[in-house]
Nucleic acid binder design. Structure first.
Lengths: 220, 220
DNA sequence: AGGCAAATGCAACTCCACTTGCGTTAGGTA
DNA sequence: TACCTAACGCAAGTGGAGTTGCATTTGCCT
């Protein structure tokens, strides 16, 4: 079953001005999308976002340049769509048996994923693309929103285990996980300090300390 | 006294291959730099980073296009140099009389600076530029490193007041302040959730809770 | 004051991202 | 099966970013 997750925003009028790719989600269209996204991924890992060009994707996907411009608008659209695909994986947060273990494993996943060019390229590419195109910003927002929603299980389990004061609903799990992740991305893209395991350790420690102090407990 | 803070990195050979701008920091050169940086600032606030073009800077600064390419290499270099200027201001961290007050004021400064396009544009522009050029990344790194060094006074004062366990050297002030700032930038540029005062409140609360739990105390 | 070289100005050129008009292919439907 | 049209392919063209060789200005030093 080929996926079809076109952005539902900005439909021109009520007259049904169909955007390309929405009316014929069948064979060729789906094949085109898959080929294009593969080419985008390899292009990103090879040349990075700033070095990725529409012409490159055209050559390496067998899809004509004009089609790429028509359906995706440009490099940023291509990258945004690629992230949409990446968001449809079956990833689940770690389950180590303790809150600290889960958060630490999660932080290490981030560290390692950004250490490997193949996985780091798409992620950082969209962050870069979001600066110059609203669709990319949208894709980025949606991606992380969904990721952190998946992560709330970690906190739910911790509450169930009695590691944090219950009930579940009283603690903002999303905020806790975000707090653990934020310093890592901050170091990566803002202060450009680079990532290592100590950084991950400290990020987790900060988030956990705040959690135990009740900082993420929702105010009634 | 005209400033001259050229990047000292990547000097080609030992034979003294002088880069433009280093041998004659006098009148015209300095005037050129000033005019260019003004034009970059107005260009950024008007069109944003993705809309800023070298030609625009040339027209609005009176400096010829060729000169801009020669001395700054391109848009990213222009933006990086502009941040270098911004880093030479006389900013000092807030001094409210309490650690919480200082951190909160600091967080609010971030929120408000990114709410105002005129101040937000240069900052976010360099973050974007750092994705495609090493000089820009360098400028970004230097800028925030210097900023957070200035902020360590906040923690020093708190220790002196007895708000945190001393001695000064035992606590990593930079890490504490970074912890308070990270969630804000994370929301701005990674999850693209936008900033508001509650976000600032929580960021400060998290950092403070971690500080009181001893998370930023240096291990001997 | 006078001379040297760095820094800038200038105009023409190259190259590539992006567009456009039209012909062709193939998915959906009767 | 046959038709219709969305989606794609193609080739030529356009515009602007970035480059190059040379003339001109202007700081700095003697």
């Amino acid at each position: 079953m080929p996926v079809d997750n076109e952005q539902t925003a900005q439909v021109a009028g009520g007259t049904g001005a169909a955007r390309p790719g929405t009316r014929r989600p069948g064979g060729r269209t789906a094949r085109t999308r898959a080929a294009v996204r593969d080419a985008v991924l390899t292009g990103l890992t090879e040349h990075g976002y700033s070095g990725l060009t529409v012409e490159y994707v055209a050559e390496h996907s067998g899809v004509h340049k004009t089609t790429l411009y028509r359906r995706w608008g440009g490099v940023d659209g291509l990258v945004a769509d690629t992230l949409d695909l990446a968001g449809e994986d079956s990833w689940t947060p770690p389950d180590t048996g303790s809150l600290h273990g889960d958060l630490h494993a999660l932080a290490l996943e981030v560290v390692h994923s950004f250490a490997d060019p193949a996985t780091a390229a798409p992620s950082s590419a969209v962050i870069a693309a979001a600066f110059q195109s609203e669709p990319a910003a949208q894709a980025l927002r949606a991606y992380y929103a969904e990721r952190f929603t998946r992560c709330e299980v970690i906190v739910d389990r911790a509450v169930a285990r009695g590691e944090l004061p219950g009930p579940r609903s009283a603690i903002d799990g999303g905020a806790l996980v975000r707090a653990a992740a934020a310093p890592l991305f901050f170091r990566l893209f803002i202060t450009r300090e680079g990532l290592d395991e100590p950084a991950a350790d400290q990020a987790v420690a900060v988030a956990l300390a705040a959690a135990h102090a009740g900082t993420f407990t929702r105010s009634t």
